[in-house]
């Protein structure tokens, strides 16, 4: 008879709390569901963050000049604007958008096949700027003098609220993750308290044989941590698959960035570990409080 396994401290610590029951299911399911929600929230927060960064990167350092004038002076004003821009410090390059590019810009609102030649559209000049950008006031004054129909647009007016909105969405996502962690902690605290009450006989026997509170707490912490990690692992896996199956493509807008890339994968991988840490902390506090109050 091999009795070594009966004597292993870790083996006993592992097995002393019953492996099944209502609290086991509660811990497993709640940590699984919370991990699933956490992965989804993470993906949304990351997508919002990526979107904000992309918008910022794409629009920073660019500007547009819009020229609205009568047909007889439109070309002359366009030439004057291009000349002025080429002589302005802080402007890297400037070019007039051709008809196909203007069609592409209008397509999301009016669809394809737009009869552009029948519409009276302003001329658009795309500008690439240095990091410091041009002297805006000076440029606007020169444009007003040489091309009265030209309006300089730095994109900042509509870029800032978009970037701010995406940033807030990301912050909300992180706050939701915090709430998920809190709810997970509360659920596991409830499960651990219930388990301690349901296993009063186990606690009695352990005390009778001289187990200290720390040892009993350790047994419950181990059991609940393992359950929470297992549940969270399953929830994370399902969450990752669900995120991967989300439709992609430009038509889906924000959803096109949903998912994890490169170093971002560390976050879903951390979800089961954080769930385990939360479970360990919650069980430790709950068991400690219960055992102290039941001398």
């Amino acid at each position: 008879m091999n009795l070594r396994s009966f004597l292993s401290r870790d083996a006993t610590l592992n097995r002393v709390v019953p492996p099944s029951g209502f609290t086991a299911i509660l811990t497993l399911v709640s940590s699984g569901v919370m991990a699933f929600l956490a992965v989804f929230t993470l993906a949304l927060a990351m997508a919002a963050g990526d979107l904000a960064s992309n918008w910022e990167a794409e629009l920073a350092g660019t500007a547009t000049v819009r020229i609205t004038a009568s047909d007889d002076v439109l070309e002359a004003e366009t030439e004057a604007v291009l000349t002025a821009l080429s002589q302005t410090p802080g402007v890297v390059s400037s070019r007039r958008l051709d008809l196909s590019e203007q069609l592409e810009l209008l397509a999301p609102w009016f669809g394809t096949g737009l009869p552009l030649d029948e519409l009276r559209l302003p001329v658009l000049i795309d500008i690439m700027e240095t990091a410091e950008g041009p002297d805006r006031t000076g440029l606007e004054q020169r444009l007003a003098a040489e091309a009265p129909g030209a309006v300089y647009e730095s994109h900042g007016r509509w870029r800032a609220p978009l970037v701010e909105a995406a940033g807030r969405l990301r912050t909300l996502g992180y706050f939701a993750l915090f709430l998920i962690a809190v709810v997970t902690g509360v659920m596991i605290t409830l499960a651990a308290s219930t388990s301690l009450a349901a296993n009063a006989q186990v606690v009695d026997v352990l005390r009778l044989v001289g187990a200290k509170n720390g040892w009993i707490t350790g047994a419950f912490v181990l059991r609940f941590t393992v359950r929470a990690i297992l549940g969270a692992f399953i929830g994370t896996l399902v969450g990752i698959v669900a995120v991967a199956l989300m439709p992609g493509g430009i038509e889906t807008g924000i959803l096109s960035g949903l998912g994890f890339q490169g170093a971002e994968w560390i976050w879903p991988v951390l979800v089961p570990i954080i769930a385990g840490g939360t479970a360990a902390g919650a069980t430790f506090l709950s068991a400690g409080r219960t055992l102290r109050s039941a001398l």
Binding site: F6, L7, R9, P18, Q201, V202, V205, K212
Partner: peptide, 23 residues
């Protein structure tokens, strides 16, 4: 005779040693 019912007889008898780390 209180025991932990899901542990074997040997595990129950060995409990005092296990909880004190005498293994």
């Amino acid at each position: 005779s209180r025991f932990i019912d899901h542990l074997s007889v040997a595990e129950n008898v060995a409990l005092p040693a296990a909880v004190t780390g005498k293994t």
